[in-house]
């Protein structure tokens, strides 16, 4: 066996080890219900904002706390506590990926990915909505 092959083999093994570390770190997408059973595990819950309830955020009292309610894919509603400033487009979001831990009675969340229609200007529905801003009669 060539020296080079040995080194390459070593590198590949190192790569596999690195990958396994990464895989170990991976988490899963859950619903509020399934997350309940994995309380100490960092999970991702795909959810929708409950637009009927207000988003509580008071920058003066605490700029690092946002509280709102969300429905997961099964339609379950939970309180969500987000330890950061309110995401600006949140009210208009079509979906939220909540990253965090399920606690008793609420979901503690430190990272949120929002699906916002504003990002997708090519979307037909959004284009129709935007129409009202660019026309004289509406």
């Amino acid at each position: 066996m060539k020296k080079l092959h040995l080194v390459l083999l070593g590198l590949v093994v190192a790569g596999i080890i690195a990958m396994s570390f990464f895989i170990k770190d991976l988490t899963t997408q859950e619903t509020f219900h399934t997350a309940q059973n994995k309380k100490d595990k960092y999970v991702v819950v795909k959810a929708k904002l409950d637009k009927s309830a207000p988003i509580e955020y008071d920058a003066v009292k605490n700029p690092n706390l946002t509280v709102f309610y969300a429905f997961d894919n099964d339609g379950q509603r939970r309180k969500v506590v987000y330890s950061n400033a309110k995401i600006t487009d949140m009210e208009r979001s079509e979906g939220l990926d909540l990253n965090g831990y399920m606690r008793d009675g609420y979901f503690e969340c430190n990272k949120i990915q929002t699906k916002c229609p504003s990002k997708y200007k090519d979307d037909m529905k959004q284009a129709q909505k935007n129409l009202s801003n660019t026309t004289s009669q509406y």
Binding site: A59, V60, K61, N62, P63, L65, V81, S83, N84, Y101
Partner: peptide, 25 residues
């Protein structure tokens, strides 16, 4: 780092740091 305001108690196990947002009046 937020030097004022009320902190949410996230429980003992939480690794939550004090917030990175600061409000200026």
């Amino acid at each position: 780092y937020n030097t004022s305001g009320i902190f949410m108690d996230f429980g003992k196990e939480s690794k939550e740091k004090s917030g990175e947002n600061l409000t200026l009046i």
